[in-house]
């Protein structure tokens, strides 16, 4: 149990910045550049952790506490996911609710720390983050219900940490929405462009505009852990049986890089539609998981 916790924590802390590196390298490859090194984000984090900070006079204690809370909640959510069969540290009916609500708490503090600065830009990002994540949550939950039904268990970590794969159509119908939501929740293209601050579509990056020094390091690290968390879930859904399947998260990172290279960012108004269609796919998957017609054939 303790060993499992240590392994998951270490994996989340160590591998997550690498995912960002892989995505950036893939994007660089597609645009014909050499790109920054794979380990760039480690250097960035190290540099930020050493730095002094500047904090706006408008802010309150919320702004000071928020990076710690965001980081810890995201990390705790990531640790809940078993990274190889049989390594779940906690399992009960509805454990995924705890997992995603921890992310929700992190998001809550991210949003109010953005509003704390009184900047209109950060308010804009906060408003969008609040709305899009509210749309994304039902989609994720329906996908998870599908997976739970396939595995016949009410605990999500049990389903991820063991059990066999079900029918591949249903699994892909559950995974595709998850992938779309992963792009939305982690502020990737086509929902948000992680490389811009001041475009009209800014969501995540703009919320941490006023963070600096260690606060910024924790926020960035938390964001990469969140990406690690989602890609780990997808990997565990697709390949629940294998021990080293977590290495596939790097493949997911490459796929994200490819998606970011070939797809343009959608307009803001289309984002709810995109999430809505992800919901439709998730719903079809859930439907198939108990459909009588499917059982006949």
């Amino acid at each position: 149990m303790i060993i499992n916790i240590i392994i998951s924590t270490a994996a989340a802390l160590v591998f997550s910045p690498l995912l960002i590196g892989i995505i950036n390298k893939t994007k660089a490859f597609f645009s014909g550049r050499r790109g920054s090194p794979f380990f760039q984000m480690y250097f960035d984090l190290y540099r930020l952790l050493k730095k002094d900070a500047v904090r706006s006079g408008t802010t309150t204690i919320v702004f000071i506490l928020a990076p710690v809370i965001v980081f810890c909640c995201t990390l705790a959510a990531a640790v809940l996911i078993p990274i190889s069969p049989g390594t779940g540290i906690i399992s009960f009916t509805g454990d995924f609710v705890l997992l995603f609500y921890l992310l929700g708490l992190a998001r809550f503090f991210l949003i109010i720390s953005a509003l704390d600065t009184g900047s209109s830009f950060e308010g804009m990002g906060a408003s969008r983050e609040a709305f899009f994540s509210a749309m994304a949550e039902p989609v994720v939950f329906i996908s998870i219900l599908t997976i739970l039904r396939l595995n016949g268990t009410t605990s999500f970590t049990d389903a991820l940490g063991g059990g066999g794969a079900g029918n591949w159509i249903i699994i892909s119908l559950a995974t595709v929405p998850f992938f779309i939501v992963m792009l939305a929740e982690n502020a990737r293209i086509p929902f948000d462009d992680p490389n811009t601050h001041l475009e009209l579509t800014m969501i995540h990056e703009v919320m941490i505009l006023d963070n600096s020094g260690r606060g910024l390091a924790l926020m960035e690290w938390a964001a990469s852990i969140k990406l690690w968390l989602f890609s780990l879930i997808i990997v565990r859904i697709i390949l629940p049986g294998s021990v080293l399947s977590f290495l596939l998260t790097f493949v997911i990172a490459v796929i994200i890089g490819i998606v970011e290279s070939v797809i343009a960012r959608t307009t803001l108004l289309k984002i709810p539609q995109l999430l809505f269609s992800a919901g439709i796919i998730a719903f079809l998957g859930f439907f198939l998981s108990f459909s009588k017609i499917f059982v006949w054939s």
């Binding site: 591949w168 159509i169 539609q273 269609s277 439709i280 198939l288 499917f294 054939s297």
Partner: peptide, 19 residues
Amino acid sequence: NLLILISLLIILSNIFLLG
């Protein structure tokens, strides 16, 4: 499974057309 996949895609394309 392929048959089911095709029908699913047909349903999705219907919904795409509606939307």
